[in-house]
Design a protein around this nucleic acid. Structure first.
Lengths: 190, 190
DNA sequence: TCGTGACCGTCCACAGTGACAGATCTTGAC
DNA sequence: GTCAAGATCTGTCACTGTGGACGGTCACGA
């Protein structure tokens, strides 16, 4: 009844794909679901050490540098599926952008407008990146679960861009480029 | 150069609307942007006490019960606008649901499908609630900034529902109700 | 009158973050 | 071939954020 925490559980999940070092795990998690499941190195090493003590993972022999690969144990697999059976817990979300908008009354208009413009840029760029990756993955007939995760990212980024575009001009500020009106649609399809 | 942290800054923002107790602040924040800016009581009281020490807020006279209202000071206003000028920081996001999906290969299909169904239910309910509130607010000609925040919630909830509906059947599981195919569209417009 | 439930604050253990430190190996400019 | 720069890899620390337990105060109705 180890009752692992979500971070530990996610590590156990990733370790199903074979032994990995803490570094690997951070990199893999970042690549797989970076935007939706934050993990810091400190956290990872801490949990790995703890799980090694309680026997959920076992450390292998160090490779190059100090690289210490961990392997999931039978107990680890059990802990993982116990955790999975408990269902997804609460989401943790903190979006400073939304805080800014909801406090918009109390800050200079141009400042808010500039931030929104910058955010729009970033999200559009992110979206473009996602779409590129998706094209590659589709071609490679990749894991449908990863594709699904990616699609969530696409939906989110596209949703954010659209949300910004549809904000009242009073908030978003006047379009800096041409005359006005909504910008060119971003991404494909609805 | 107080360099307040985001939590403290958000409290200063809310205090622009007048003196409030810690309890009020938590309640207001929850009502205004609960889903996008988490705040816990412990955090709030901790920051209020700290800010009272550094003079960013000043405690008033206790009211009913132990209620202790705090008021923002001039220094507090300055600290807030300094913070705002630094721009929105990094978002913090942890969505266990996405973690589940991306680790889908390693868990029982029915389990994942059941979770997705449950999530869909919750999000649809949330969406319905948002839409109700929006109708009321629109009628009341409310603060456009709050409306914008609400719209983000609507976009997010709707996006999530749609994302689930469009997942391959292999992941989402067979629709439990009728024959199959996508369910009835949720919410209004595109 | 009691007791239930909404207020209101405090405290604590633990989880999560980012900056920093430091070791080891690879690469490539010269 | 060597030396600097940078990538890889683990770890520590102070701080921020989370969730729950706890205790007290007040309003309201059975």
């Amino acid at each position: 009844m180890s009752e692992v925490n979500p971070t530990a559980a996610s590590l156990l999940g990733f370790l199903h794909d074979g032994p990995q070092t803490g570094w690997d795990l951070v990199a893999r998690a970042e690549a797989m679901i970076g935007p939706f499941w934050s993990l810091t190195r400190s956290q990872v090493y801490r949990e790995l050490a703890r799980m090694a003590e309680t026997g959920l993972v076992s450390a292998g022999t160090p490779g190059r540098r100090e690289a210490l690969p961990y392997e999931i144990t039978e107990a680890g697999r059990r802990a993982f599926s116990d955790w999975a059976a408990r269902g997804p817990g609460e989401a943790t979300v903190r979006l400073p952008l939304l805080l800014f908008v909801s406090l918009g009354r109390h800050m200079p208009r141009e400042q808010l407008a500039a931030m929104l413009a910058e955010q729009r840029r970033q999200q559009a760029e992110l979206l473009a990146g996602y779409l590129r990756v998706r094209a590659e993955l589709t071609e490679a007939a990749a894991d449908p679960y990863l594709l699904a995760t990616l699609d969530f990212g696409i939906a989110t980024a596209r949703g954010t861009v659209r949300w910004i575009d549809r904000l009242p001009e009073e908030i978003r500020g006047a379009p800096e480029g041409g005359r006005s009106g909504p910008r060119a649609p971003v991404g494909i399809r609805s």
